[in-house]
Amino acid sequence: MIFDWNYALGILPQFAPALWITLQATAAGMLLALTLGLVLALLRRCDVAWVSWLTAGVIEFVRSTPLLVQIYFLFYVLPETGMRLSAFATGTLALGVHYAAYCAEVYRAGLDAVPRGQWDAAAALNLGPLRTLWRIIVPQAVARVVPALGNYLVAMFKDTPLLSAITVVELLQTAKMIGAESFRYVEALTLVGVFFLLLSLGAAALIRVVEGRLQVAHA
């Protein structure tokens, strides 16, 4: 038999620390992406034309170039500038920056989707800018933004194997190590695939539930 179930069960525990690393990288990366994305989105809306254009260019550039190359760039170039980060921190930083560009577009689309009349009405009622954003605009943008951000969270999770390229011992790297040791790639790599499938499907189902809730709340 090509796929050995007993062997697969035997190597299963070795994946536990890797799974933990993967989840940590996803969580930290997403936190960075959400915050940095908000900064980018606000700069993109800036009244000063060159700031807005420059931000748009940066967003476009980050979105159009491979995450793997960005990871290499940070991993090899940051130390040359004197910034010494661990491979994990570098990889997480790359994930965060890459997905910040996507989050910025999500925020922007969410804000743009709120009709202009809502801004007018808030101004006519003399609400201040922060109050307008926080009480009127953001609550209406959330229903659109949260599902999209959820999808990027899953996408980022699925991109964590790229960190194996800079020696972070996440799920895929663990599978490679097991494979290199025992020359049995079938079980290890298949298990990794199954992990991702289960977690992604679970996350996708969760997003649908949240999405449904948000839509009900706004009906």
């Binding site: 699925k158 964590t160 790639y185 790599l189 991702f196």
Partner: peptide, 20 residues
């Protein structure tokens, strides 16, 4: 399956596992 797993994992699976 292909949307639910990672592209890199798919690549490795096809390159390392399929030959077996």
């Amino acid at each position: 399956i292909f949307r639910g797993t990672s592209a890199l994992v798919q690549l490795f699976w096809i390159y390392f596992v399929l030959p077996r």
